[in-house]
Lab assay of single mutants.
Amino acid sequence: LTDEELVTMSVRELNQHLRGLSKEEIIQLKQRRRTLKNRGY
């Protein structure tokens, strides 16, 4: 997933992508998404 996709994707879509990932990967992705959102994309 690109940063842009992460930010513009709805939470529902995101959760579908996260299905099948490990807990660590999910946590990393969610942190990255929060960081991007805070940057004001």
Rank of each mutant, 00 (worst) to 15 (best):
Val7Trp: 05
Asp3His: 02
Leu21His: 06
Thr2Asp: 03
Asp3Trp: 04
Leu14Ile: 05
Met9Ser: 02
His17Val: 10
Met9Ala: 02
Ile27Asn: 10
Asp3Phe: 03
Asp3Thr: 02
Asp3Lys: 01
Ser22Pro: 10
Arg34Ser: 08
Asn15Leu: 15
Leu18Met: 13
Leu14Asp: 01
Arg34Gln: 12
Leu21Thr: 02
Gln28Val: 11
Arg39Pro: 10
Arg33Lys: 05
Gln28Phe: 13
Lys23Pro: 09
Ser22Gln: 05
Arg39Val: 12
Thr2Met: 03
Val7His: 04
Thr8Met: 09
Gln28Cys: 12
Gly40Gln: 14
Gln28Tyr: 14
Glu4Val: 09
Glu24Gly: 11
Arg33Asp: 01
Arg34Met: 06
Ile27Ser: 09
Met9Arg: 01
Tyr41Cys: 07
Gln16Ile: 13
Glu5Lys: 07
Lys37Gly: 04
Met9Gln: 01
Ser22Leu: 05
Gln31Asn: 10
Ile26Gly: 12
Ile26Ala: 15
Glu24Asn: 09
Leu1Glu: 00
Lys30Ile: 15
Thr2Tyr: 02
Asn38Lys: 14
Gln31Val: 09
Ser22Lys: 08
Asn38Met: 09
Arg32Cys: 03
Lys23Glu: 08
Gln28Asn: 10
Leu1Gly: 00
Gly40Ile: 14
Glu24Ser: 12
Leu21Lys: 12
Lys30Asn: 05
Thr2Leu: 04
Lys23Ser: 08
Leu18Phe: 14
Glu4Ala: 10
Leu14Asn: 00
Lys37His: 06
Ile27Gln: 13
Arg12Gln: 12
Leu18Lys: 02
Asn15Met: 14
Ile26Arg: 15
Leu6Phe: 00
Gln16Asn: 12
Asn38Gly: 09
Leu6Asn: 00
Glu24Arg: 11
Met9His: 03
Leu29Phe: 04
Glu4Phe: 14
His17Gly: 02
Leu36Trp: 00
Ile26Thr: 06
Arg19Gln: 10
Glu25Lys: 08
Leu14Gln: 00
Leu6Glu: 01
Thr35His: 13
Thr8Ile: 07
Arg32Val: 02
Glu13Ile: 05
Glu5Cys: 12
Leu14Lys: 00
Gln28Asp: 09
Glu4Asn: 08
Leu1Pro: 05
Asn38Tyr: 08
Arg19Val: 11
Leu14Tyr: 05
Glu24Thr: 10
Arg32Pro: 00
Leu29Trp: 04
Val11Glu: 13
Asp3Met: 03
Met9Leu: 07
Arg33Ile: 14
Ser22Asn: 08
Lys30Arg: 12
Ile27Met: 12
Lys37Asn: 05
Thr35Ser: 10
Arg33Glu: 03
Leu18Ser: 04
Gly40Cys: 15
Leu6Ser: 00
Val11Met: 12
Asp3Gln: 02
Asn15His: 12
Leu36Arg: 01
Met9Asn: 01
Asp3Cys: 12
Asp3Ile: 03
Ile26Ser: 08
Tyr41His: 12
Val11Ile: 14
His17Lys: 10
Glu25Asp: 08
Gln31Gly: 06
Glu24Phe: 09
Leu18Pro: 00
Ile26Pro: 00
Ser10Pro: 05
Arg33Phe: 15
Leu14Phe: 15
Arg33Pro: 00
Ser10Asp: 05
Leu36Thr: 02
Arg32Lys: 06
Arg39Asn: 14
Leu6His: 00
Gln16Glu: 13
Lys23Ile: 11
Lys23Asp: 07
Asn15Arg: 15
Arg39Met: 15
Arg32Glu: 01
Arg39Cys: 14
Val7Phe: 08
Arg19Tyr: 07
Met9Thr: 02
Lys30Ala: 05
Tyr41Glu: 13
Ile26Lys: 13
Gln16Lys: 14
Ser22Gly: 07
Ser22Cys: 05
Glu25Gly: 04
Leu21Trp: 06
Arg34Ile: 08
Thr2Gln: 03
Lys37Ser: 04
Leu21Val: 04
Val11Asp: 13
Gly40His: 12
Gln28Glu: 13
Asn15Tyr: 14
Arg12Ala: 12
Tyr41Ala: 12
Val7Ser: 07
Glu4Cys: 14
Ile27Ala: 13
Leu6Lys: 00
Ser10Lys: 04
Leu21Ser: 04
Glu25Pro: 00
Met9Tyr: 02
Arg33His: 14
Leu6Val: 03
Tyr41Val: 13
Lys23Thr: 10
Leu36Ser: 02
Arg19Met: 11
Asn15Glu: 11
Ser10Val: 02
Leu18Trp: 05
Gln31Met: 10
Thr8Tyr: 07
Lys37Leu: 15
Glu25Asn: 05
Arg33Thr: 03
Leu36Cys: 03
Leu29Cys: 15
His17Pro: 01
Asp3Arg: 00
Ser10Leu: 03
Asn15Gln: 12
Leu18His: 01
Gln16Asp: 10
Gly40Pro: 08
Asn38Arg: 09
Tyr41Ser: 11
Glu5Met: 14
Asp3Glu: 03
Gly40Glu: 13
Val11Arg: 15
Leu29Lys: 02
Leu6Gln: 00
His17Asn: 05
Glu25Tyr: 06
Glu25Phe: 06
Arg39Leu: 15
Leu29Gln: 03
Gly20Asp: 06
Gly20Thr: 08
Leu18Glu: 01
Ile27Cys: 13
Leu21Glu: 01
Gln31Phe: 07
Ile26Met: 06
His17Arg: 14
Lys37Cys: 15
Gln16Val: 10
Thr35Glu: 15
Leu36Gly: 02
Glu4Asp: 09
Gly20Glu: 05
Ile26Gln: 15
Arg39Gln: 15
Glu5Asp: 10
Arg32Thr: 01
Glu13Asn: 04
Asn38Leu: 12
Asn38Gln: 10
Gln31Ile: 12
Leu14Pro: 00
Val7Thr: 06
Arg32His: 04
Ser22Glu: 06
Arg32Ala: 02
Arg32Trp: 03
Gln16Pro: 03
Arg19Asn: 08
Ser22Ile: 03
Leu18Arg: 00
Glu25Met: 11
Ile26Val: 11
Lys30Met: 15
Arg33Ala: 05
Ser10Gly: 06
Gln31Glu: 14
Leu6Tyr: 00
Asp3Leu: 03
Glu25Val: 11
Asn38Ser: 08
